[in-house]
Computed example of a mutant assay.
Amino acid sequence: MHELPLVFFTVLAQGTVGLFLVLACLLMANSDANRQQLLNKLLMVVLVLLGISGAAAMTHLGQPLRAVNVIFGLEHLSALSVEIMTTSLFGGAVFTYVAMVHFGILPKLQKLVLAGAMGLGVLLLLAIANVYTLATVPAWNSGWTIFQFVMTAFVVGIPAAALMLRSQSVSLGAFQKNTDRALATLGFITLGLVLVGYPLYLFWLGQVDLPANPLGLFDYHGSLMLARLGLLFAGLGVWVIAATRGNNSAVGLAAVSTVLVLTAELCGRIFFYDLHMFASGM
């Protein structure tokens, strides 16, 4: 599909923001120097993932070298221009914080920069959702678009953070185990919100005045939705159950969970982009 690069960009960018917010909250709440050093190193993963998501978005452009034209769109507060600039500012803020910590620059201002990056991360989630809240696409033009995009950040970001922390379980010790259990609880709450919210979204979608049943728009849509819910439940459910029962250091389990939920969100996003077929005038 033509929108596949955007599928990867939106899911990876949102998941990366979720991962960053979890790690940033841990940094804000922790004063141990050794733990902070390890957590700061994990933020390099955030920069790598953000770079990959940005590269995916660039492949969608017919002429990538004209991406600089986004600056002119800011004059009219173009949603796409705001999204791209917010992505750049978020990445720049995370890089600035990592560089400040690595080189010991202005220690008293580091937490302020980290807080600013967290704020930009939240703005990025809203900016991406704003691009797709279009009156010309009735299936997108609702608060459910924001709900789905924000939930992706937590659905992907929480198990990804658990994976990153489990990779450092030897160094982090009891802190990692306690954090893993806390993340599992948060993951359970997130799973509950999605399993309640997504069926409600599909019910709302069925009430929208569309020329055809969105679940029957393509032959694979029904299977895609079942796969998304099944992968999501398996990915989060297995990890949450294992973590709450004391299995808090198995890196492989967290990796499988992250891959499953990432695949689930990609399935859901493909369905979402297919709904643009219902845009006015098409």
Rank of each mutant, 00 (worst) to 15 (best):
V7L: 10
T10S: 13
L12V: 15
V17F: 01
F20L: 06
A24Q: 10
A24M: 11
N30H: 02
S31N: 14
A33H: 03
L39I: 08
N40R: 12
K41W: 02
M44V: 02
G54F: 13
H60W: 06
P64D: 08
L65H: 13
N69C: 07
G73P: 02
E83H: 11
M85D: 00
S88Q: 14
L89M: 15
F90Q: 05
A93M: 12
M100L: 11
G104K: 06
K108P: 07
G116D: 00
G119L: 11
L120K: 08
L123Q: 05
L124Y: 01
L125W: 07
L134V: 08
A135H: 15
V137G: 01
P138Q: 12
W140C: 06
I146V: 15
M151S: 11
V155Y: 04
V156I: 15
I158M: 09
A162R: 12
Q168S: 04
Q168C: 09
Q168G: 10
F175P: 00
K177E: 15
L183P: 01
G197L: 03
G206E: 10
V208G: 04
V208R: 07
A212F: 07
N213G: 13
N213W: 06
P214E: 06
G216R: 14
H221M: 13
L236M: 15
L236V: 02
G237I: 09
V238C: 11
A242N: 13
R245P: 05
G252M: 14
G252I: 05
V259E: 08
V261K: 07
T263W: 04
R269C: 05
R269F: 00
I270R: 09
F272R: 01
F272C: 03
D274Y: 08
